[in-house]
Design a protein around this nucleic acid. Structure first.
Length: 575
RNA sequence: CGGGGCGUAGCGUAGCCUGGCUAGCGCGCUUGUUUCGGGUACAAGAGGUCGCGAGUUCGAAUCUCGCCGCCCCGACCA
């Protein structure tokens, strides 16, 4: 391909609406252009890189036994009603109406469609296991699209769905995908690692996310360098001991604390109650039902854990600024800052307490009376805890839950997610099979996603320098850019450039020939910006000495004779 | 949706507070000359409903109100 025959609108300056480096480079290198927030047009360089990623995914999915299909993006709402997600996923569902005013949804994912297919087509254990996948556009009504392709209203996803005869067989399917994902990201030149994950609205129990470490990532990952434990902070636990029990004895005692509304205020003189000797009492609404949530004063509540452990589909903290919630605080008898779980807890409220508080005594907490707190509180003796559960956010440096060495926390971009789904969807949508004994059983399912467009941007986020993108060869839009410094069509330079183009193409290399009649500086800058793995510069001086220059992006320049150029490039690309 | 910021030529921006223009600059673009190994130099040009709509005023890019769009932080997630 010739530069002048394709379309690579590079930008010298950083677009004002791009904040993170990968977003800036997507625009500057001419890979994409924004139509509006969260919607992008892929230009040739972006499209080619995208297709390379897609093909790697196809090869590895096929290798792992996947069967490629293509499902409709436009879907009937009734299958979403049947799965129950018409309500639970309502926030992200785009809904459209046809001319008869009938409603349709634009698929944010395809569990409902594939399970409907399986319900109709898979009837026997002899047809299992099966793993269907597709690479397709997804639509999600994102609360806030951002960072270019990272979070868009419309994005390309590879989604796969496995069907098995048993939980054990499903585990094997899961493992196959886990391994395939590891290979896919490695082949894309991405350093991605699996972490234990929460399952969210998709449901299911067993789940890993594939994370690319990056400061700009939207996730936090807890990891242990010693033993390899890694988990999304939403899911992570640590090996911290429970709060030490002290000499038991004294009765609960109320004492005045005028104006004291925070853990911090109570820890200062004249009270001097250490935060780790306080009980933090939070009022939450889970699917509109009020509850009390107790964590230690120096801990933070992990809302994702609360949601997962309580099985709620929506939770939120009660808020004094919300008129509807005032009755909740009135029921307790106090406002935030003086809340507690010892007295005046309505009988129908559940009280969930963090494990770290189990057995704690000699604690201080709000008295449910404004301006008063209680001391000498014993969790077991004085509070009626409905259920103990792990509810706290893990902090950096806490002992690893597996090996007790201190854990670290870092930010990361989620590029893939694998789930074991169990029979949730198969039961609701009737995906059953007859087993060897002629008994009808629901299929055991798994689902597996890769954000393809996001992966593209994650590669850039992870692989760039001050001059531009540094493409891993496997996903570069073109692997080689030939840069003749004189483009006179009948000159020796252009003649050689054409010859090299031909030779490399014949060897199966994707080559771009920069035939623009521009100054060398312009062409070099653009080649660096777009990030081709190898650049071949052809100039008069070099040619006179019988050499062409081969420069790996970000590497050392080497001079070779023109006839050796093709083999040298092949050698560099093979690395 | 809550909080913050922004909207002036294809891109990046000055001017706005303290109304008074023919709206300025850099990049890019066009033409010519020049240069020719890391975004050449010179000259001449083209290109603007100052986001949209009302209002205040003799006069609005500038002040007021409403709307729209974009970016950032939070809730959502591949």
């Amino acid at each position: 391909m010739r530069w002048t025959q394709t379309f690579i609108p590079t930008l010298k300056e950083v677009p004002a609406d791009a904040e993170i480096i990968s977003h800036q480079l997507l625009l500057r290198a001419g890979l994409v252009r924004k139509l509006t927030g969260g919607l992008y047009t892929f230009l040739p360089m972006g499209l080619r890189a995208l297709q390379k990623i897609e093909n790697i995914i196809r090869e590895e999915m096929d290798r792992a036994g996947g069967i490629e299909v293509l499902m409709p993006a436009l879907q009937p709402p009734d299958i979403w009603q049947r799965s129950g997600r018409y309500e639970t996923a309502a926030d992200v569902l785009y809904k459209v109406r046809d001319r008869a005013k009938k409603e349709w949804v634009l698929g944010p994912t395809h569990e409902e469609v594939i399970t409907t297919l399986a319900a109709n087509e898979i009837n026997s254990y002899r047809q299992l296991p099966r793993n269907f996948y597709q690479i397709q556009l997804k639509f999600r009504d994102e609360i806030r699209p951002r960072f270019g392709l990272m979070r868009a209203k419309e994005f390309i996803m590879k989604d796969a769905y496995s069907f098995d005869v048993s939980d054990e067989a499903a585990m094997a399917s899961y493992q196959k995908m886990y391994d395939a994902y590891t290979r896919i990201f490695a082949r894309c030149g991405l350093k991605a690692f699996p972490v234990e994950a929460d399952t969210g609205v998709i449901g299911g129990k067993h789940s890993h996310e594939f994370m690319v470490p990056a400061e700009t990532g939207e996730n936090e990952v807890v990891y242990c360098e010693a033993c390899g434990y890694a988990a999304n902070i939403e899911k992570a636990t640590s090996g911290l001991p429970r709060t030490a029990a002290r000499e038991a004895g004294a009765e609960v005692e109320k004492f005045p604390t005028p104006g004291v509304l925070t853990i911090e205020a109570l820890s200062r003189p004249p009270y001097g109650v250490a935060a780790n000797r306080q009980i933090k009492t939070l009022v939450y609404l889970a699917d509109s039902k009020p509850m009390l949530v107790l964590v230690r004063g120096d801990d933070q509540l992990n809302e994702t854990k609360l949601m997962a452990r309580t099985g709620a589909t929506a939770i939120r903290p009660a808020d004094v600024k919300n008129a509807d919630d005032l009755a909740l605080f009135a029921a307790l008898g106090a406002k935030p800052g003086s809340l507690g779980a010892v007295h005046h807890v309505p009988a129908d409220w559940k009280v969930y307490a963090d494990e770290r508080l189990r057995g704690a005594n000699d604690m201080t907490t709000g008295a449910n009376e404004d301006g008063f707190h209680l001391r000498n509180v014993s969790m077991e003796r004085d509070i009626k805890v409905t259920e103990w559960m792990d509810l706290r956010i893990v902090g950096s440096g806490e002992p690893c839950v597996k090996c007790s060495k201190p854990v670290k926390i870092r930010r990361a971009i989620e590029v893939g997610h694998v789930f074991k789904l169990g029979t949730k969807y198969s039961e609701k949508l009737g995906s059953n099979f007859l087993d060897e004994n002629g008994q009808q059983q629901p299929c055991f399912m798994g689902c597996y996603g890769i954000g393809v467009t996001r992966t593209l941007q994650a590669i850039i986020e992870q692989s760039h320098d001050k001059d531009g993108i540094i493409w891993p060869a496997a996903v570069a839009p073109y692997q080689v850019c030939i840069t003749p410094l004189n483009v006179a069509t009948d000159g020796p330079i252009m003649t050689l450039a054409e010859k090299l183009h031909e030779g490399l193409s014949a060897s199966g290399v994707d080559v771009l020939l920069d035939d623009r009649d521009d100054r060398p500086g312009v062409k070099f800058k653009d080649a660096d910006l777009v990030g081709f793995p190898v650049r071949i510069a052809l100039g008069e001086k070099g040619l006179a000495k019988g050499i062409v220059e081969i420069k790996p992006r970000g590497g050392e320049l080497v001079n070779v004779a023109p006839e050796e150029a093709v083999s040298k490039v092949m050698e560099l690309l093979a690395r």
